[in-house]
């Protein structure tokens, strides 16, 4: 029963265009950003450092993880949107009717959706890594820097990027169930991830007492899980941002996903379908 529900959810995603449209934008965006970063710090970084300017102080060893983790530190909004759209489109197109007719146990449907989107989130993570590592490592080695690809720590980081992307997709599903209006959900996701959270993270990093709170913001928890992020490196250099251990970050992020999905189930998912 559950397996059938999961297969149905996979089919739902693969039979409309959204998954690859989002994927192309994600890969393009991550490739552009990581290429730019590798170019700037790999190519010009030496000159900036020797000129003694106040460029962010990023050591050679820290550079590869920062560039590779662009896949999640910048790209995480895509699995969130993906999960949100997958859920809200069911409300928007009233496809919850045939869905619940084919599988009247609504919890099973939501569970199948969470599993399915987690898999797609992980696949998005892998695709984004192909972009960030592929382009980033090429530029790093071309400019005479270490790519750190022989280092097992690097591969552990890549695996954590995939995990983070999977959890973000689950968060998206939960948000979609919490906010069934598609437009409202997209606006909230974009406003929070692109605008509100970066500001909050910057502000909380300015005071010690706030930094302890700031590390629990979802983006901060995700960066902690991955273990590296352009955002953390930039702010940590300038201020006192704190970061959780990687496993703590993972648990915080996963906890948020479960809470969002649980609240979504208790609110809109169990409602009358009219």
């Amino acid at each position: 029963m559950f397996l059938r529900a999961v297969r149905s959810e996979f089919q739902k995603i693969l039979t409309v265009r959204m998954w690859w449209v989002l994927l192309i934008v994600l890969v393009g965006y991550v490739a552009f950003t990581s290429g730019l970063l590798a170019g700037v710090f790999g190519g010009l970084g030496d000159q900036l450092a020797s000129s003694g300017g106040n460029a962010p102080d990023i050591t050679d060893a820290a550079l590869p993880p920062i560039i590779y983790s662009i896949a999640s530190s910048i790209g995480y909004v895509f699995p969130v949107l993906f999960g949100t759209l997958a859920t809200t489109s069911e409300f928007r197109h009233q496809t919850l009717t045939p869905t619940f007719l084919a599988q009247p146990h609504r919890g099973t449907v939501l569970g199948a959706k969470l599993v399915t989107l987690a898999v797609f989130g992980a696949l998005y993570g892998i695709a984004a890594l192909v972009a960030s590592v592929g382009l980033g490592a090429s530029i790093l080695s071309a400019t005479g820097h270490s790519t750190a690809l022989g280092d097992s720590d690097t591969w552990a980081l890549l695996a954590r990027v995939v995990l983070a992307m999977a959890i973000w997709a689950i968060i998206g599903v939960g948000l979609g169930a919490l906010i069934p209006s598609q437009v409202a959900a997209i606006v909230i996701v974009l406003a929070f991830t692109q605008f509100l959270e970066p500001i909050l993270r910057l502000m909380t990093s300015l005071a010690d007492w706030a930094a302890g709170i700031g590390q629990y913001l979802p983006g901060a928890a995700s960066d902690a899980l991955v273990g590296s992020s352009i955002f953390t490196s930039m702010t940590a250099a300038a201020s006192g941002a704190q970061s959780l251990e990687w496993w703590q970050g993972g648990l915080v992020l996963f906890g948020m996903a479960i809470v969002a999905a649980g609240l979504g189930y208790l609110t809109s998912w169990r409602k009358d379908v009219t």
Binding site: R4, A5, R7, S8, Q11, K12, T15, P98, T99, L101, A102, Q103
Partner: peptide, 8 residues
């Protein structure tokens, strides 16, 4: 086929 799959 999406719903046929879910319903077996």
């Amino acid at each position: 086929s999406v719903y046929g799959t879910a319903a077996g």
